[in-house]
Nucleic acid binder design. Sequence first.
DNA 1: TCAAAAGTGTTTCCTTTACACCCATGC
DNA 2: GCATGGGTGTAAAGGAAACACTTTTGA
Lengths: 235, 235
Amino acid sequence: MKNKAAPHITVAIDCIVFGFDGSDLKLLLVKRGFNPEMNKWSLMGGFVNEDESVDDASTRILNKLTGLHGVYLEQLHTFGAVKRDTTERTISIAYFALIDIAKYKQQLSHDYHAEWFPIKNVPSLIFDHDAMVEEAKKRLQYKAALHPIVFELLPEKFTLPQIQSMYDAIYEVNFDKRNFSRKLLSTGLLIKLNEKDKAGSKKGAFYYMLDKEKYNENLYKIFSLIITPDHLQFL
Amino acid sequence: MKNKAAPHITVAIDCIVFGFDGSDLKLLLVKRGFNPEMNKWSLMGGFVNEDESVDDASTRILNKLTGLHGVYLEQLHTFGAVKRDTTERTISIAYFALIDIAKYKQQLSHDYHAEWFPIKNVPSLIFDHDAMVEEAKKRLQYKAALHPIVFELLPEKFTLPQIQSMYDAIYEVNFDKRNFSRKLLSTGLLIKLNEKDKAGSKKGAFYYMLDKEKYNENLYKIFSLIITPDHLQFL
DNA sequence: TCAAAAGTGTTTCCTTTACACCCATGC
DNA sequence: GCATGGGTGTAAAGGAAACACTTTTGA
């Protein structure tokens, strides 16, 4: 029971920031500007202050890096091995964030030497940050299978090829585009616009946007259509 | 970045302990023996020591309550509101455990005034422990839909009516027993024994046990059979 | 002999999957 | 005019859901 002496421990936050640029899924990393492990890549982090909740701390730290408000941010897991931080006993609460890369204000990143890395090509990170990233990838797969969080990664207008690239990247598969688009459109959640994105091809791909009313009603019923348990990577 | 002063915070563990007795899903609670909130029901908890990982701390605390080793224990979520504990700023890492109630050594509980409560009839708890329980119920639903963790709640030999009661309790539904047993047996994972449990009825229900070899091969492919996304309770 | 729970099959409908060709455009 | 990526339809098989009666046995 809680009647013994209570040790006090340093509590940190680390943020796994996913971004999507229309074709690739990426991870935002910062180059560490101090020792130990100076100049190595790491997740963006910081400490939890005594007068803020851990959720507030994660929001503050993410905002400091990206300058963005209203970013999707979810607690992932708390990493608490005794020697995970080489300097001092620190437990870290990892959060993962989903952002549309286009919204990211590049100038702010310079303070932290931040850089986007394709998820398939991430450098090795300090401490246990590699494990955090692995865990976050798995969580994103699970969560997106049943919840409409993937739209956090997309701009307001997006094309079917774009959204399929995103799913392909998250689940590391290649969906059949015929089956994929049929399923996605069968939700009735997407509105086709009279406008094309000509960046990806000569023919151009029609833009779609979310029907926000239907989206709020139907919500989750939708996403189980796309992903079946076979797509999840198990440990 | 992590170059400012690092505040030190009290870090606690709280355990949500689920048990199954053959017909009901239950929660193990302890009666608080000290102030504040003396004599109210709460989750079993304790502090993280400086020389142990948070996982080790949770195992230690659960063992202190149940006397059991090898219990299924999984980190749930870290609760970090500033005033969640009324005495001192404390963050709590919640873990949930699954145990077969029959294995629980009742005598040990007396130290902590522990008691099993049917999940449908849990008293209100101290601090934010109610929220922890809600979160744990949801997590159990998600996890069990895709992973073979439910057997942690069952004894080695169990009947089909028992395992169905367990699923009914976890998902708060009533599965059709014909469809349920067909699906479950179609996995080929269960071995029918020549022995009946006569406790539940006059006719008696055959015991089954897990085929551990096939279990280790097939693992997860199995569980997606039983639960579809419709069974999950969304927020 | 009755009450109470265990056990078992069939049909219908829907979902999933596999698969291949035409379209529009810029160069 | 050709190369590139965008867009569409169908058929066959498998899985999900709805549904009711018989069996066993203890009291």
